[in-house]
Amino acid sequence: MRMSTWIRQHVAALRALLVLTVITGLIYPAVVLGISQIPGLKDKADGSLINKDGKLVGSSLIGQAFTDGKGNALVQYFQTRPSNSAPADGSIPDGYDPTNTSFGNMGPESVVDTLDPSDPKKDKQALLSTVCSRSLAVATLEGVDGHRPFCTGGSPTDSASVGSVLAVIGPRDAHGNVEHPTKVISINEACSIDPKNPTKPFQQAYKGVTVECAQRGVDYSDGQIVPIRGDASVDTAVPTDAVTASGSGLDPQISPAYAAIQVARVAKARGVSDDQIKAMVDSHTTGRALGFMGEKTVNVVQLNYDLDSKYPFKG
């Protein structure tokens, strides 16, 4: 009796396994696949793929870097926002590696750079200096004013742009502030190794004390960190999405404001009018979700490939 009961239980379990396998492993996937191929759903279900001249070139859901492979922007294309998604070997210098999505972990308090004692190329920029240097690069490319609050520079005539931050050294009061500094360092501006071309800090003096450039390898952690706002307007010509990476590192969209400052460059490179390029941007601009959520965006990947079809680059 016990053996008979054991066999019946296992036969019932086997039947249930077979039935559920057919339902969940065959019928259900087939139904979902069939529904996904209905016109209007097929493109999204297949990955929103983009084909050019019969060749698969990407997806409208995943961003791409429109550069020359060395990080230099191709002038005929609209540029995407920065990306933290890149392989460790540096084979994709501008990120947008879909197999290695990543995000930055630096926040608003990341304002002090790490200056390597021996090699400037190994310096590690804080978030503030990263934003400042990106703003300068975009300003140089687009011919706009890239100055931002708390940055030392931001126009094509500036030689560098880092966070305008001071390390103020001296006795502190009960609140931890240095009211009477004995030494002030522009902590993100390293002193030049060329004595004939000394570094000039972004600010000459602070509370009556001459500001000095930072010496590599010197510890200034005993100083009070004081960001200097400067006189740049918060309404900068270079939008925020042009200098910060997205959470996934693969977003294909930029803001209409970032697209707007690129119109003149792209139009000149392709030999057409600004109005023709603006019309293309408008046709690739998506409104807010449900009319009130999020912001308007421009899909750069779709825009650039459609530009190649309508206004081919002849340079």
Rank of each mutant, 00 (worst) to 15 (best):
A269I: 08
L17D: 13
Q204N: 13
E142R: 05
Y258H: 14
A242S: 12
D241T: 12
L33P: 01
S129Y: 09
V75G: 05
D306H: 04
K124M: 08
I185L: 05
A237H: 13
I228Y: 05
D97L: 01
T157N: 11
G107A: 04
G143P: 07
V209C: 14
V144F: 13
A269H: 09
E189W: 03
Q79W: 03
I228H: 04
T199C: 04
F292P: 13
G40A: 00
Y311H: 01
V165F: 05
T99C: 05
I7A: 06
S233W: 01
G153S: 11
Q125Y: 10
A45C: 08
M3K: 14
G40N: 02
G69Y: 08
C132S: 08
V263E: 08
Y206G: 12
S83T: 00
V165M: 02
D274Q: 15
P149N: 15
L20D: 03
D158P: 09
S83R: 00
Q9I: 04
A167F: 04
V298W: 09
V234G: 06
V11G: 09
K44L: 15
Q76H: 02
Q215Y: 08
L166P: 08
P93W: 00
R229T: 00
G170Y: 07
A259W: 13
S129D: 12
V31F: 10
D113T: 02
L141I: 08
T24C: 13
L290P: 04
K121L: 10
L17V: 09
I27V: 10
D222S: 12
P149L: 10
V211C: 15
L141D: 06
A269K: 11
S255T: 15
I261Q: 14
